[in-house]
């Protein structure tokens, strides 16, 4: 279980709080106005930002002293998810072994993951030779290989068109099913939140509200969600 225990995050004069928990197999869309702190929340869970007070716990263990690379987390950023000077295969390999000393078994797993996301035979390519959708698939393949119990998505598909984004969401669900991961996905689009299935945590005015079922939220939205969605 992921617990945000009276968590307070501070960046300059900006402050936000969260106090809720989520099951290990939850699918949570994180929605809210720009600048509300959605990415800040993910950065804290991933280990890039120390809480100013409160705790982040995974399966009961406080994550405060766990460095980013050792947290039970895979994170996909808005961009720069792949090192441009390395091949796709090397980029995936780094997810298995940071020193890239891969065993034949590692390589087999790597090829399998590439095939799984539809990038068969693209291992030797450089990221610059991939389309935006293919680059996202490669990043998801690495998430598949790492198989960490929490998958954080900080709008990695924002630059893709609606159809491609739909495909990526299908893939995210598949990857999450296979690895049994808890998913936290930042998005601006209610359709994406619905497509993810599961819950939505709404972020506004310095508070990350506890996740509620997405369908129920949109069917009967409170005032600030209505404002955000632009419904009257």
């Amino acid at each position: 279980m992921l617990q945000l225990d009276r968590l307070t995050l501070t960046q300059g004069s900006f402050q936000m709080t969260a106090d809720w928990s989520a099951n290990p197999d939850a699918r949570i869309a994180v929605m809210g106005p720009s600048g509300a702190g959605k990415s800040t929340l993910l950065a804290a869970i991933a280990g890039f930002l120390k809480p100013s007070s409160g705790r982040i716990l995974w399966q009961g263990r406080d994550q405060a002293d766990v460095p980013a690379g050792e947290r039970p987390v895979t994170i996909l950023f808005q961009d720069q998810n792949l090192f441009p000077h390395l091949t796709v295969a090397q980029n995936l390999g780094l997810g298995l072994r940071p020193d890239l000393r891969l065993t034949p078994a590692d390589r087999a797993r790597l090829d399998e993951a590439l095939a799984r996301v539809g990038l068969d035979g693209m291992g030797p390519r450089r990221p610059a030779q991939l389309s935006g959708g293919q680059a996202s698939r490669a990043a998801l393949a690495r998430a598949l290989l790492r198989a960490r119990p929490i998958l954080l998505l900080d709008e990695p598909f924002a630059a893709l068109g609606p159809a491609l984004r739909g495909e990526m969401l299908d893939l995210v669900r598949a990857v999450a099913d296979e690895t049994g991961a808890l998913v936290l996905m930042v998005t601006h689009d209610p359709k994406d939140a619905l497509a993810l299935g599961g819950d939505t945590a709404f972020v506004a005015e310095g508070i990350v509200h506890a996740p509620v079922e997405t369908r129920a939220l949109f069917a009967n939205p409170p005032k600030d969600v209505q404002d955000y969605l632009g419904r009257t």
């Binding site: 280990g47 890039f48 690379g69 950023f77 720069q80 090192f83 090397q90 780094l94 940071p98 020193d99």
Partner: peptide, 24 residues
């Protein structure tokens, strides 16, 4: 550009030098 990605993949020390810093 790549600090957080490398951190999140636990690429530290020599690996970071070899696979990130020196090539970039």
């Amino acid at each position: 550009d790549y600090g957080r990605l490398a951190d999140s993949l636990a690429i530290q020390g020599w690996s970071r030098l070899r696979w990130l810093i020196l090539p970039r």
